[in-house]
Design a protein around this nucleic acid. Structure first.
Lengths: 158, 158
DNA sequence: CCTAATCTGCACTTTTTAGTCAAGATTACT
DNA sequence: AGTAATCTTGACTAAAAAGTGCAGATTAGG
């Protein structure tokens, strides 16, 4: 259960574009240098974000990237899906659906239930957080941080 | 954020060995067939579990694998770590530690905080669940399922 | 119209992960 | 001792992910 490079750098680029704000423009060379990846690789990632509908690009001189829609409408979970998939592929045990007695006593279903639990848990965070949350100041960020049971605020998890 | 093949099949094998119970023995051919992977691959995964101290092997005729220690002492999070890593590698922004004002306004820290939140969230499940939980019947499994906010029980996430 | 700055697309190489193979070592049973 | 069932190891191949390079298209400004 690791983050892929696409997810890591893709989200970083998106946040950077978000910080540029309304009408702000960020170029590939800028992101490349800021995030420490090659321009070619940044370009590759940006293409994914563009095709996913999160950013739009302007070509030519003074070109660059801007958010395609308001930050509060960009759900981080959706971004993750596009960048690398939030998928748990424990696709067994579908035949047992509903047969609780058998199901709970099988390897398939034990494992499957665990993955589901993890998936639900991750979604608690990723489906609630929008790009806007990531751009806000600390107090606002605590909105989604507090969704995590046990976390008292940003400082408690940082 | 995907599960690796190692994590998927490693955990499945471990659970299967767990089901065999005290003194029970599971062989590579058995696991191979049950999980639909080649014997060679199963062997490779089992080696990881053995080196991680979760199972022990008996060679020769009537040989096979057994749990190396009681199921209740095997934390699933630890198993995951060994099989593929539960690591979020957003290792930037360490220099800012403590400087909240600057930190929250930076790409590094926004993203890092999110990863931490996800990590905490995942740990809510994986660090609480033991192999014993996965082997128990439905009612017992709800112990760790209930740790997920919003989940009312096993059925609610399955 | 020319130039410089920019994105675009595709093919390529490198690195990591997944999966296979074969030869060897160990054990139970007869 | 012999045999069959089993794990062990390391090297190998295949597939996927990460990362690079280059020729082309677009645009702003002189």
């Amino acid at each position: 259960m690791k983050l892929s490079a696409n997810e890591e750098y893709g989200l970083r680029c998106l946040v950077r574009i978000g910080y540029a704000g309304e009408g702000g423009n960020v170029t590939i060379p800028e992101m490349s240098q800021a995030e420490g990846v090659s321009p070619a690789y940044a370009a590759k990632i940006l293409r994914v974000l563009r095709k996913g509908g999160f950013v739009k690009a302007a070509r030519g001189k003074d070109g660059g990237y801007t958010l395609a829609r308001p930050a509060e409408s960009i759900v981080i979970g959706d971004v993750m899906d596009v960048l690398g998939g939030r998928i748990f592929e424990s696709s067994f045990c579908d035949s047992h659906a509903g047969q609780a007695a058998i199901c709970t006593r099988s390897v398939d279903c034990s494992v499957r239930s665990l993955w589901r639990a993890v998936q639900v848990s991750v979604d608690q965070v990723l489906s609630k957080a929008t790009l806007r949350d990531l751009l806000q100041n600390e107090e606002d960020m605590n909105t989604w941080v507090r969704a995590i049971p046990g976390a008292k605020g940003l400082h408690s998890i940082q």
